[in-house]
Amino acid sequence: MALPYGYSCVKQASAKTIHNHLRALRFAHNEMSQQQLAERVGVTRQTIIAIERGKYSPSLEVAFKIADVLGLPLAEVFSYG
């Protein structure tokens, strides 16, 4: 049985998650360590680890700070899909 239009939209939207290439970008940025990035962003190293593993989606503020430290636009660090 086909699902109602609205339901499929909701399911499709909730399946999307935030992805990032933080680990690769850190290494590309003078092999910056997790600790260095954490200190410059103002979070703990555990939070950087959680973000890299996809276990935590940072707030907009932290996401912008990470992009700023890496000198990249936000869309190159984080993607949604």
Partner: peptide, 8 residues
């Protein structure tokens, strides 16, 4: 000695 952040 480690502070807390938004995730904590």
């Amino acid at each position: 000695r480690e502070g807390s952040d938004e995730r904590d």
